[in-house]
Amino acid sequence: MSERDLELYERIQKQDKHALELLYERYEKLLFSFSFRVTRRRELSEEIVQEVFIKLWTKPGIYDESKGKFSSWILTVTRNTGIDYLRKKNENMYELEDRDALKNEEPSVEEMVEWKEKGKEIRSAISQLALEQQQMVELFYFKGLSQQKIADTLKIPLGTVKGRIRLALKHLKKDLASAEQGRDRGYE
């Protein structure tokens, strides 16, 4: 998968429009869904995806392998663009989202395999976190708030925010690791 990404990226560097279109098709739904996860707005999500591809097209050399896996990199760029838009538009930033609003949409067959498998596991792991830890992940990662704003929103001392965020993320990672182990055992 990442080899294909790299090959397409190389062609995009040479201004191959068809390669950009292919890469777009590979990532459209994931980037759109992630942008929607961050902004909860369709129009804004489209603007974000567009900006990501404009960066990719107009800035030769924006990505190279020293920046890690292409897929992780393009998701990071999407997140940064998304939280930047949120901040500029200053809309509903502090509102905690209704996490159940979209719960029943199952990934369809053609979703990227990794997304389908991991998405379920991560959602399930997040939902098993204590409510406060869920809020930490939401406000810090998906809304990109500063430590000060998180402290204000959740009415907790500023000095404790960093520790709580790290604890929540580590807890999540640990749960995911054991879920993965469990899944591997299940296949045996």
Binding site: L20, L30, F32, I122, V137
Partner: peptide, 23 residues
């Protein structure tokens, strides 16, 4: 720690005509 979090996004159908507009 945050690397996999984007994959937790529920799949959403992109807007109609989005691909053409963006490209």
């Amino acid at each position: 720690l945050t690397e996999d979090l984007p994959l937790s996004s529920e799949p959403i159908e992109p807007n109609d005509g989005m691909k053409n507009r963006i490209l």
